[in-house]
Amino acid sequence: MQTILGSGGAIGIELAKSLKQFTSDIKLVSRNPKKINDTDILFPADLTDPAKVDEAIKGSEIVYITVGFPYNTKIWQSTWPNFIQSVVDACIKHNAKLVFFDNIYMYDPNYLDGMKEDTPIKPISKKGIVRAEVLNRITKEVESGNLKALIARSADFYGPSIVNTSMLTETVFTPLSKGKKANWPIALNYKHSFTYTPDAGKATALLGNTDDAYNQTWHLPTAKNPLNGKQWVTLISKEMKSKNKVSTVSNFMFKVIGLFVPVMREMPEMMYQYNRDYDFNSDKFTNRFPEFKVTTYEEGVKEVVAIDYKD
């Protein structure tokens, strides 16, 4: 049995699709899970309840964490550490391997241009501090020999059918589709990598089913040569056949936008990622799995527009 904790989000859905090539025994766990594959087993659960986490993990060979708790600092602080501890404890108890879908929030901001798996961990945001604590709880058990786990780390992501969890969707795709200006954070001249969610799902499934990938950190496959803000807006507007219009948005304006778009309310502390180059290196993965085709930015944007924004 391979179990996805947090199966209803953008990554969980793509992961479930991709796991089908490795197993027909897939358990989807969330508050209201829905089948992705015909043979999926649905397990409704409140993942903040350790007893439910233990019950969900029992009988699992591999457990994937793709849960997305509400993007709110206070919720993250009160929820993530306890949740991770309950997962780690249950995986050890039931001898299950763990795959943790992670982000880059814990990295030292001075090393974002060319991030690799050994980038120094030195978070400056409250959310980054939470992610560092979560990571520490996993690696501590791995280093002690109690747990077999891997970290599958993604850059900011974009992809089809994402609602309220992608910066690129909220600031560029959606406003341009409505004939409005795109709202790029801080400055247009810095490059910024984005991981394509279908690639992330396929790669996470592949790593989870590759025994020698465990007890390591992996950057998920992400296109090279990231675009800067102006280039992202130009590419997306061209594919949408919309006007190429963009404004840069300050921290203050993100707070104003947050009155109407909740995810934006939480973004000001993360804006350091947009006042410098953000280049996510995934050479370790592509060297280990050379047959994996990484979606180019042009291909990814074309697919998103075709799926989500065509009449």
Rank of each mutant, 00 (worst) to 15 (best):
M1G: 10
M1S: 12
Q2H: 14
L5S: 01
S7V: 04
S7L: 02
G8S: 15
A10T: 06
A10E: 06
I11Y: 04
E14D: 08
E14C: 02
L19G: 02
L19H: 03
K27R: 15
I36N: 02
N37L: 01
D38M: 08
D40A: 10
P44F: 04
P44E: 06
L47R: 00
K52F: 15
V53G: 08
E55P: 12
E55D: 11
E55I: 09
A56N: 08
K58G: 06
Y64M: 03
I65T: 11
F69L: 07
F69M: 03
P70H: 12
Y71W: 14
Q77M: 14
S78C: 09
S78M: 12
W80C: 03
F83S: 02
I84D: 01
I84Q: 02
S86I: 13
V88R: 04
D102S: 14
P109M: 11
Y111H: 14
L112M: 14
D118Q: 11
T119Y: 07
I121D: 07
I124T: 06
K127E: 09
V134A: 00
R137K: 03
R137D: 08
V142Y: 07
G145A: 11
A149C: 09
L150G: 05
L150H: 03
I151M: 14
G159N: 13
E170S: 08
E170M: 08
T171E: 12
V172L: 04
T174V: 14
P175L: 12
L176D: 05
G179L: 04
K180L: 15
K180R: 11
N183E: 13
W184R: 02
I186E: 13
N189F: 09
T195E: 08
Y196I: 07
T197R: 03
D199V: 13
L207G: 01
G208T: 01
G208L: 03
N209Y: 06
A223P: 05
G229T: 11
K241N: 15
N244M: 06
K245M: 05
T248V: 04
V249R: 00
S250L: 00
F252Y: 05
I257K: 02
I257N: 02
L259W: 14
L259H: 10
M264A: 07
N275M: 07
R276S: 15
D277I: 04
N281C: 10
K284L: 13
T286W: 12
P290F: 00
P290N: 03
E291M: 00
F292N: 00
T296A: 11
E298A: 10
G300W: 15
V304T: 03
K310Q: 15
D311K: 13
